[in-house]
Design a protein around this nucleic acid. Structure first.
Lengths: 219, 219
DNA sequence: AATTAATTTTAGATTAACTTAAAAAATATT
DNA sequence: AATATTTTTTAAGTTAATCTAAAATTAATT
């Protein structure tokens, strides 16, 4: 049985290696986990001892098969709980992360498989991130940043690549969420911002970084 | 913010004082929490420091107003999660205690009030124990052990006073749960066991301790 | 290549929660 | 009341997870 802390390290290693497509460094882990590099080194030794990570001094870490299995299971639990909180308890999507962060540590195959069934085996969480199935497999979808659509094209929002409260609240404001359709009406040369139409109704202008964080499929 | 351990101590003190109607002793706490008396003394000092308990060396402990508030909130959370697990996730009642024991430690007013609403403000958990409301008030019901009914009388099961897996599984077997009606058909003088009829259908014989653990209302 | 800067690790301490063993206090028994 | 028993506390030490500060290693820059 792993401690909360150990589980959080595995998840952090998974996320960092996924994002940067290479082994996670001590410093990046320290930043991600809001702790000191010394503490990270300490913990890496322990996780290495337990054969959950491949660790060589000064060389960064990657997950072993077992470490990867555990990290994936944590992500599965996290995202299922997020679906529960949004779909069943009617939380706003910007408020579910911290709660799911706690709920995910409750380990019980039975609990998670029943929750999964109760939620009707969702494949994606409220932010559009894929929920690994019980075997750890993620559903892949064809998606691209809204910023890559051409003027005149329409996309349907599948998810977001940025999870900060500020960003999610902004999307609530302009009434954009997974499922929403967005048509690119005009591109402003000066700063690459976009004039868009939301769900065939409202019009508004969004900055380029916003368009980069919105993942869509062309329709 | 209290640790899991501290919260478990408060709950244990609450339960022991409730049951034995006096201050909880170091030994009873050690037994209840499956630890040593020395560890208990250690923790009592810390909780006393935080003004959550009234503690005098060699004299046992009681909860302060604040300690009582926290313990009651934990019981509320525990019992609401049990309702969720049984009513929504379709767990058997003998399997929910340990999971609720973990879920209860997730602190969020918002989470609990939404869960409460989602479950339709239940007043009792799957074992028939009252769920304190947000203000900490328990609903009181008129109830008595089945063993106190006279021969010929009928009662409706409201809950159980014994929560062991073995007992709950036995009740499943004889198809008794909250809501079930039981008619006393005969009392066996030799060992005070009872011949009963369940839900106007099956007949069976139960021992006196079983009849003591079944709480009913006369109908 | 040598120096500087950044990153990572070690060393040494701290804290919460726990343990065992021995001492102290309270309670029960003769 | 004195003694024995039980209960509780203290003392001393352990372990996981953290920290700060200093040392070691690697990477970057001149």
């Amino acid at each position: 049985m792993l401690s909360f802390t150990e589980e959080n390290y595995l998840k952090a290693i998974f996320k960092i290696s996924e994002k940067e497509k290479k082994s996670a460094s001590t410093n990046s882990l320290a930043k991600h986990l809001e702790t000191t590099p010394a503490s990270v080194t300490d913990m890496l030794k322990r996780l290495s001892e337990k054969e959950l990570i491949h660790y060589e001094r000064y060389r960064g870490v990657t997950l072993t098969t077992e470490g990867n299995r555990i990290a994936t299971s944590l992500i599965r639990r996290h995202r299922l709980w997020e679906v529960f909180l949004v779909d069943k308890l009617r939380f706003d999507w910007e408020h579910v992360h911290d709660l799911a962060e706690e709920l995910e540590h409750i380990y019980s195959e039975e609990l998670i498989s029943r929750l999964d069934a109760f939620l009707n085996y969702p494949k994606f969480d409220p932010h559009g991130d894929p929920i690994p199935n019980a075997e750890g497999r993620f559903t892949i979808r064809n998606q691209m940043p809204l910023s890559e659509l051409s003027t005149g094209q329409t996309g349907q929002v599948l998810g977001v690549k940025e999870h900060s409260n500020a960003f999610l609240r902004y999307l609530n404001q302009i009434r954009v969420k997974p499922g929403t359709t967005i048509k690119i009406e005009e591109r402003i040369d000066f700063d690459a911002s976009l004039r868009i139409q939301v769900d065939n109704r409202e019009h508004c202008t969004i900055s380029y970084p916003v368009a980069q964080a919105l993942m869509v499929k062309k329709i």
